[in-house]
Simulated assay, not measured.
Amino acid sequence: MSSDPAVTPVRRFPWNIDYTSVCDQCGKWRAQGNHDKCSRRRQRLNAHLRHPKPKA
């Protein structure tokens, strides 16, 4: 690493994952449009994972 203060540090994760991936529900890029409906659908599909049945 350089001791020069003008050198910008290397970013480990420089991109935003929301804009570089494809939506698993509609198949469009996440940067294209609003994905609130997809998020709600995903929440409904995974609701059983959030509230597991108590062990007897």
Rank of each mutant, 00 (worst) to 15 (best):
S2Q: 10
S2K: 11
S3F: 02
D4A: 02
D4E: 09
P5T: 10
P5V: 03
P5L: 01
P5F: 03
A6L: 14
A6C: 06
A6P: 00
A6F: 12
T8H: 05
T8P: 11
T8Y: 02
V10C: 02
R11M: 05
R11I: 02
R12A: 01
R12L: 02
F13M: 02
F13R: 10
P14R: 09
N16C: 10
I17V: 15
D18T: 13
Y19L: 15
Y19A: 13
Y19N: 10
Y19R: 09
S21P: 00
V22H: 03
D24V: 15
D24L: 14
Q25K: 11
C26Y: 11
K28I: 00
K28P: 00
W29A: 09
R30K: 06
A31N: 03
Q32R: 08
Q32N: 09
Q32Y: 06
G33Q: 10
G33I: 15
G33E: 08
G33H: 12
N34G: 05
N34H: 11
N34C: 12
H35P: 02
H35F: 12
C38F: 03
C38N: 07
C38L: 01
C38E: 06
S39R: 15
S39C: 04
R41L: 10
R41P: 00
R42I: 00
R42W: 09
R42H: 13
L45R: 14
N46V: 00
A47F: 13
A47E: 13
H48Y: 09
H48G: 10
R50K: 03
P52Y: 06
P52L: 14
P52R: 14
P52N: 04
P52E: 07
K53Q: 12
K53Y: 04
K53G: 02
P54I: 06
K55A: 03
A56E: 08
